[in-house]
Design a protein around this nucleic acid. Structure first.
Lengths: 349, 349
DNA sequence: GTGACAATCTGTAACGTTTCAATGTATAGG
DNA sequence: CCTATACATTGAAACGTTACAGATTGTCAC
């Protein structure tokens, strides 16, 4: 009764997911032929090919990922590597959605590989590469001299970075033009009469700190305004810290009459700090801020905003990785997203 | 020269990732023994076991996922199924981080499976189940009669829902107690003298719409306040729509003097609408809002907030799915998160 | 009619793992 | 001394796929 079922070639094969064997049985062909027919190999007769593909579609055949992966080493996986503590909130979901959009009609799956502040950022990358868990990787918080990018270049695994590196090595990236953002912001502030400007920059270790800073200082000298140093905090600091430092700064004799802020959440803190010091936004001081969703104008109408589209970034990053996997040259997979103009509040219609 | 390499048993095996074969060769044992030794099977000698495990650790052996998956059907994957359009922003990242935290020291990977508004929400679930792509699934936007939960229960695939169902079927879930939130919110508003309250509820199709609504109305009659209907919009509507409707409502003769808002982003819109109508928060009207990160008080100090911890939700959901996969009873894997008190603004120290 | 050649199709092996059914080796009981 | 019994270890097969080397046709030139 409990003899183990031995029907060697399970001709019935009505049970479970269809496999190549199922298709082979149904079409009366060999497994190899079916496999090749499905991928349009040239040595398969045109009619056979059509027949196989028809049957496959009818019964809803889907290649078994484990089978493919074991045989070929191809995982059909893109890994998005994220820092669990730093990444700004809406950022993450938008990037994910952007990536999803692009890989939706490919066989790729998106896996999220997190790492915490305490860890070496290289750890998750090493894991992915050593275990061969992904065909391509997307990283953020890119540094000028980024060990992760270097490591993956050495190992020859396709990846794309959110933000640029500066190591003289070529790899795909997508970046927001933070230099342009900062210059435009400064010009705008100068245009409305602001003369003493402060920059809330990204943390120094990230590449775009320099971009923002260079844009800021270049534009300062262009318009003849002066900088009020504000580099004891970055957008990575807590809301409370930024708020406190801003308030301190605003209580000084020589205080800024304009801010450039590299992140929306930080802007909330800046404004709070300004108001803590008893000053008023739009009268005593103006703030230009990046934002990734259209919320800052609800917060304070006086804010000046520039939009950064993270969903687009996600999509571009995914396209880049897929492109590299597909054999395109890494140098041709780099893109820079141009900031919108500085936008003042507009009453909704 | 280009003869294909035939060294059948690659005794050298110094190349590439170590496999069971590598370990077998190094220890002089059979592949089977090694496999069993690594998983502490009882019929393996104690010393052999130690020896194998030592060597495995030394050379950094990691089981090949594709091999395991092909042989056993176990994917070691948890899938988080997300709606690409509706999910509120910070929501997603926090959930992901919560899940990550829990699966960090398990062999599980997290894959994100998105679906768009246009799609049948059942589509991604069907895909996952049919292709056997995950050992467990997490879904959100749970409905009272949820086809996805029903489907997965039928197929016997472990899952957990963010939010409860109401079909008389038992499955793991994590939920925020929105009934308690709404009652507390109403009580608080009543406590500061508010008498005509409006509720900005979740969309009707989601289970927690009822929870919030019931809590709201129950507490209304308890405190003897009255409801100003505000059900032409839900938190799923756009910022602009909520803002407009709020403004309309606030211009009526009989207008609310208190709001209960089920989402932070929506609250920004409500406040904007209130101010569009020329009224002042804290004087003409008070608003109690849920929030998932501590930003609303920066927005307007007069806001009253209740915190919902999505990271916790993610962690609980992950624990539930893993528990079910591990054989625990689905009924024992349900949890409800109790709201904080209603919090007024407190000046930072 | 024979050989050459192209056009199609097919069996075998392998990827790394686990399960099944043995195999071998001591130990103890008779 | 033989046999039962437990213990430790093992090879073979299978999961679904693809690469490789053949195998089977039919066609055509001579």
């Amino acid at each position: 009764m409990d003899r183990h079922r031995t029907e060697k070639d399970d001709e019935a094969s009505g049970q479970g997911r269809p496999t190549l064997k199922t298709l082979a049985f149904m079409t009366g062909l060999g497994v190899t032929t079916v496999s090749r027919a499905l991928k349009d190999a040239p040595e398969i007769g045109a009619e056979t090919r059509r027949r196989v593909q028809l049957v496959a579609r009818q019964i809803g055949y889907r290649p078994n990922r484990a089978g493919v992966r074991l045989r070929t080493g191809k995982t059909n996986v893109i890994s998005l590597v994220l820092n669990t503590e730093h990444e700004i909130m809406s950022f993450v979901s938008d990037i994910i959605y952007g990536v999803s959009e692009v890989i939706a009609d490919t066989p790729y799956h998106l896996i999220v590989t997190p790492y915490s502040r305490s860890q070496d950022p290289l750890d998750p990358i090493r894991y992915l590469v050593e275990t061969g868990s992904a065909d391509g990787v997307i990283i953020s918080r890119t540094q000028p001299n980024d060990p992760r990018a270097r490591y993956m270049l050495e190992r020859g695994i396709p990846f794309a970075t959110h933000g640029r590196t500066d190591m003289g090595l070529i790899h795909p990236y997508h970046d927001f033009d933070n230099y342009a953002f900062a210059t435009e912001a400064v010009r705008h502030l100068a245009g409305i009469g602001r003369r003493r400007l402060a920059l809330l920059a990204p943390p120094v270790e990230l590449t775009y700190h320099r971009h923002a800073l260079n844009g800021f200082t270049d534009a300062l000298s262009e318009v003849g305004a002066s900088e009020i140093p504000f580099n004891t905090v970055s957008i990575d600091h807590s809301i409370e810290q930024i708020r406190m430092r801003t308030a301190q700064l605003m209580r000084r004799d020589v205080r800024p009459d304009g801010f450039v802020s590299s992140a929306a959440a930080a802007t909330l803190a800046i404004v709070a700090g300004i108001e803590d010091a008893g000053l008023k936004l739009g009268r005593d001081v103006d703030v230009v801020s990046k934002q990734s969703s259209d919320l800052l104008h609800l917060f304070r109408r006086e804010l000046l905003v520039v939009n950064e589209d993270f969903r687009l970034a996600g999509a571009e990053l995914a396209r880049s990785v897929l492109g590299w996997i597909g054999g395109a040259g890494p140098g041709s997979l780099q893109s820079l997203s141009v900031p919108t103009d500085v936008l003042a509040y507009r009453r909704p219609d």
